[in-house]
């Protein structure tokens, strides 16, 4: 179908004019403006679909952090790894505080403009025989009175957080102050099973509320919840359509430019079997085609493929 395989018969045509003159004729220039307008509209539709994707994603991401708290055990079990869809969810944890000796600190944590530590304490879960590590809050120093480990039963709410990615394989040797929040490190420091997640405590619903209490740590931003991937596909399709519109214009103009006079080697032969009809007819067009501007679409859109294929 390509127009590049034209036969040499067109090269000898005497009235060959530069491509830009073909483009600047009212017909093809007007069609160019039309194609540009359509392509611009299609591009705008693509941008609109991309916006839809962004707002859907933002809504889905926010919805995850806004849902009512559910029991941690209902999201996943202590035997599983942390599922991605649980990260950022608000959960309830019910149990008893673990041994004070199992309390940990995570160093180099900023709260506002101050450097300090996160206090991480295990809650022994009522039903599963294991524990979950709860980030109780922030203290300026390890010896701060608010860091004193609580005791007794507790019911608290918080947000699920995943282990940090930073490698801290040497952390286990450092005692009670670690440099990153990682279950793989902490699991070696306790002699019970641990949930593969942290709960960033937001409030204590029942149980002893220590006074003074560590400052509440804001929950980490929930991971982006990609919603509306269909709209991404639509956006790209609109842009492809926009490019296709311009490509069609170029193709049509090139066809017309190569062969403004269909009488030279046109394929208007009624013979359905011959792929290469000899030039014979279309005398009606030949007289009209002497004028520069009147190349009709029907004449000028040369189906070169029928000649060459």
């Amino acid at each position: 179908m390509s127009a590049g395989d034209d036969t040499g018969s067109r090269e000898v045509r005497p009235d060959r004019r530069p491509l830009w003159r073909t483009v600047l004729t009212p017909r093809w220039f007007g069609l160019l403006l039309l194609a540009l307008a359509i392509a611009a509209g299609m591009s705008a539709m693509g941008v609109w679909q991309l916006d839809v994707y962004h707002s859907k994603t933002a809504a889905a991401t926010a919805k995850r952090a806004e849902g009512a708290p559910v029991p941690l055990q209902s999201l996943f079990s202590i035997d599983e790894g942390l599922p991605a869809k649980a990260v950022g969810r608000r959960v309830m944890v019910e149990g008893t505080w673990g041994r004070p000796a199992d309390q940990l600190f995570i160093a180099d944590r900023r709260q506002g403009s101050a450097d300090g530590f996160w206090v991480v304490s295990p809650v022994m879960l009522s039903d599963s025989g294991g524990a979950v590590m709860v980030v109780r809050g922030w203290v300026p120093t390890v010896s701060d009175p608010a860091a004193a480990a609580p005791r007794g039963s507790v019911r608290l709410t918080g947000a699920v957080a995943a282990s940090e990615a930073a490698d801290s394989s040497g952390d286990a040797a450092k005692g009670r102050v670690l440099s990153s929040l990682r279950i793989p490190t902490i699991v070696h420091l306790v002699d019970y099973r641990l949930y593969d997640a942290f709960v960033i405590q937001s409030s204590v619903e029942s149980g002893v509320v220590p006074s003074p209490a560590p400052a509440v740590v804001p929950p980490p931003a929930p991971p982006t919840d990609h919603a509306g991937l269909r709209n991404i596909a639509y956006a790209f399709q609109w842009w492809v359509f926009a490019a296709f519109t311009l490509w069609m214009w170029a193709k049509i103009v090139l066809d017309a430019h190569r062969d403004p006079n269909p009488e030279s080697d046109q394929d208007t032969q009624p013979n359905p079997t011959s792929p290469d009809p000899p030039p014979a007819e279309a005398s009606a067009e030949s007289s009209a085609a002497s004028s520069v501007a009147d190349d009709q679409v029907e004449e000028s859109v040369d189906s070169s493929g029928t000649v060459s294929a």
């Binding site: 394929d267 208007t268 009624p270 359905p272 011959s274 792929p275 009809p277 189906s303």
Partner: peptide, 17 residues
């Protein structure tokens, strides 16, 4: 276009392409 029953409504030839 001569009378060609195969191309009733069109003056176009139906080439293999």
């Amino acid at each position: 276009s001569p009378a060609d029953p195969a191309t009733s409504a069109s003056s176009q030839p139906v080439t293999p392409a």
